[in-house]
Deep mutational scan, measured.
Amino acid sequence: GVTLFVALYDYEARTEDDLSFHKGEKFQILNSSEGDWWEARSLTTGETGYIPSNYVAPVDS
Rank of each mutant, 00 (worst) to 15 (best):
T15F: 12
T15Q: 14
E39S: 08
W37N: 15
D18Q: 12
D17V: 06
G49M: 01
P58H: 06
A40M: 05
V6L: 06
E16A: 09
F5D: 01
F21C: 06
Y11R: 08
S53C: 11
T48A: 12
P52Q: 11
S42V: 13
R14F: 09
L8V: 06
A40V: 09
R41C: 11
V56H: 01
E25N: 04
E47I: 08
V59H: 11
R41A: 09
Y11K: 03
V59D: 06
S20G: 06
K23M: 06
E12L: 08
F27R: 00
S20I: 01
S53G: 12
V56E: 00
K23Y: 03
V56L: 14
V56T: 06
K23H: 04
T45H: 04
R41I: 13
G49E: 00
I51D: 00
G24H: 04
Q28D: 12
A7W: 00
S20N: 10
H22Y: 13
A57G: 13
G35S: 09
E25P: 01
I29T: 06
S32L: 06
S61Q: 02
N54F: 05
P58M: 08
L4K: 15
Y55P: 00
V6Y: 08
S33H: 13
P52S: 12
H22G: 12
S32F: 06
A7Y: 00
S42Q: 11
G46C: 06
L43T: 14
D10N: 08
H22V: 12
S53Y: 14
S61N: 04
A7I: 00
T48Q: 09
E39M: 04
H22I: 09
S53H: 12
A7S: 07
Q28N: 11
V2G: 11
Y9I: 14
W37M: 15
F5V: 05
L30V: 14
Q28W: 05
L30D: 05
L19Y: 10
L8C: 07
N31L: 03
E12C: 10
D36N: 12
Y55R: 14
N31Y: 02
V6H: 10
S32H: 08
Y9K: 15
A40I: 01
T15V: 13
R14K: 13
T15R: 15
S61K: 02
G1R: 12
G1Y: 03
P52H: 11
L19D: 00
T44E: 12
W38F: 14
P52R: 12
R41Q: 14
R14I: 10
H22D: 14
L43K: 12
G24E: 11
V59C: 11
S32G: 08
A40Y: 01
K26V: 04
E39Y: 09
S20Q: 04
Y55E: 01
H22W: 06
A57Y: 07
T44F: 05
D17S: 10
W37F: 14
K26Q: 08
N31Q: 04
T15S: 13
D60L: 04
E39Q: 14
D18N: 15
G1N: 08
D17N: 15
E25R: 01
F27G: 00
Y55H: 09
E25H: 04
T45L: 03
E16K: 10
A7C: 01
F27D: 00
Y11A: 04
F21H: 00
A13K: 09
Y50V: 15
N31M: 05
S33L: 12
D10M: 02
Y9R: 15
S61L: 06
S33G: 09
Y11G: 02
T48I: 09
T3E: 12
I51G: 00
L30E: 05
E25I: 02
E12A: 12
I29C: 10
K23V: 06
V2D: 11
E12M: 12
H22P: 10
F5C: 03
A57M: 11
Y11M: 08
D17Q: 09
G24D: 11
I29F: 03
F5T: 09
D17G: 07
A13W: 02
V2T: 15
D18L: 12
E47G: 14
I29G: 02
E47M: 10
Y9W: 11
G35T: 07
K26S: 06
F21T: 03
E39F: 03
L4W: 11
G24Q: 03
I29E: 00
D18T: 11
Y9S: 12
E39C: 07
S33D: 11
D36L: 06
T45A: 04
W37K: 15
L43N: 11
L43D: 09
G1P: 02
H22A: 15
R14N: 10
R41D: 02
P58Y: 03
E34G: 09
T48R: 11
S33N: 06
D60C: 05
G49V: 01
W38K: 09
K23N: 04
V59I: 10
Q28P: 00
A40Q: 00
S32I: 06
A7K: 00
D60H: 08
A57N: 08
E16R: 11
L43F: 09
A13F: 02
Q28S: 15
T45D: 03
V2I: 15
T45E: 02
S61T: 15
Y11N: 05
S53N: 08
E34M: 09
E16F: 03
D60I: 05
G49D: 01
Y55F: 08
